[in-house]
Design a protein around this nucleic acid. Structure first.
Lengths: 244, 244
DNA sequence: ACCCCGAATTGGACCGAACCAAAATATGAC
DNA sequence: GTCATATTTTGGTTCGGTCCAATTCGGGGT
């Protein structure tokens, strides 16, 4: 039986059924209990097997389909994705990014100030002139190797205090953590001043990244400009086509 | 009445109801008939107003919510997103990218060959050794200004013939068009040879982009490595957090 | 063996209905 | 007026059904 192979829904679990089903299937796929390209039982059969309605099964599958773990073909069936791609891309802060690569992040503070929004910031953050903002300027290190210069601006309303930020800005933001960011990349040459701060040779190439972070409800909570060392940093991103 | 303000479902339209509802709402939002932060009628009321079931209303809203056009708050209501961001990011080929910026794309072919996969390509494309591939090498221009050097590799099985590609590779791919791409960015210095091809000064910064394109069903159909001029090209991307 | 066609299977779209949980609002006590 | 509390409103989850459309597959005919 399918249920025995992949696992059952935990009795007593208060989470929504469709999420439980998702978890069970996701696990099975990740540990290859369900082989790539393998067909799942029909939705109607899954519903019977797990004793839930087909609507619930579909809602569970919906999530896994747009997480790219499954593919559906009308008339044919639902299949485990042929090639399960890793959790690539999907935003992360510098801190999290480094940790996920097995490196130790560290920051050297250059400045940490409170002030009134500058015009450019007001535009980017969608704030009215005169609003208070916090600014954070840091040199970022990974395993004690300088990686980037970072200038972050955050609305004062999104942080309890100026020194709420220790290492990770995103941790400090808490519920105001961005769920979505827009980034602009371009290649530049480091200025002499920047080279000195990062202690790298002059005229080295750098990746200039401008980032705007948005909360769930669409507020802008982060405007960050950074310069990454071209020789030490790769940025990986996933893009999708618009849904037609 | 709400329906009069935003529009009605077209009678006789054979498209699924939830898609029609989506279209109507999307239009209203885009042309500001529905103001940002404005609350929509309750789902139950929408269902009555449009004479569809609440399930259908929810399915329509679901789509708009994760397209960031709406936000939902349990107990409170559904609201037009405060800040409607443009269709940023969301992959496009060089051709489409340039057209959307109002520039005229052009290519200068350096090579167009057929051959057997190289080890690096086989790995990237997930092909077995010995498979046939097409390779396309071009200099890309926008408004007759050189923008990038591009080396693309595609499985022969995804294209009818080597010369199916005229300007846009993605057009030629047809149904095998990627719906998702993974990109790696890094900043580098152009080599002397590259500088010469692009007719730019030596030691200029460039954006090195490695791209893998995936079709709907997870097959890799594109492996492209390109070098963009740092002074002429900005790349914008949208990232999301994983769904927990 | 091969090909065409109808039947069975499978996902896709919809419906009406019910109950839960969070948020907003009305109510009443102080 | 103020504040705690009950009620209402709103989205969130789940059910059992029905019909449609793409795909697959078994038969029958050649």
């Amino acid at each position: 039986m399918f249920v025995e192979r992949v696992g059952t829904l935990t009795k007593g679990d208060t989470a929504p059924l469709y999420q439980q089903l998702q978890r069970v299937l996701r696990n099975a796929i990740e540990r290859q209990v369900l082989a790539p390209a393998e067909a799942l039982p029909a939705e109607r059969d899954l519903a019977i097997a797990y004793n839930v309605s087909r609507v619930t099964v579909r809602k569970a599958l919906d999530g896994l389909v747009d997480a790219r773990l499954l593919t559906r073909k009308q008339g044919a069936g639902t299949f485990v994705a042929a090639r399960v791609e890793k959790n690539f891309a999907t935003i992360s802060s510098f801190t999290e990014d480094m940790l996920s690569r097995g490196r130790v992040p560290r920051s050297e503070w250059l400045a940490r100030t409170e002030g009134t929004v500058a015009p450019e910031e007001a535009m980017a953050l969608g704030l009215s002139p005169g609003s208070q903002v916090y600014r954070f300027t840091r040199i970022r290190y990974a395993d004690n190797v300088s990686m980037a210069l970072e200038y972050a601006t955050v609305p004062a309303s999104s942080l309890p205090s100026l020194d709420a930020v220790t290492e990770s800005l995103y941790d400090a933001l808490g519920t105001d953590r961005p769920v979505r960011v827009l980034q602009r990349f371009r290649a530049v040459l480091f200025t002499d001043e920047q080279s000195e701060l990062l202690r790298i040779e002059r005229n080295a190439p750098g990746l200039e990244i401008e980032r705007r972070g948005y909360t769930q409800d669409g507020r802008t909570v982060e405007f960050t400009k950074s310069w990454y060392r071209g020789d030490a940093y790769d940025f990986v991103a996933e893009l999708n086509v618009p849904p037609a």
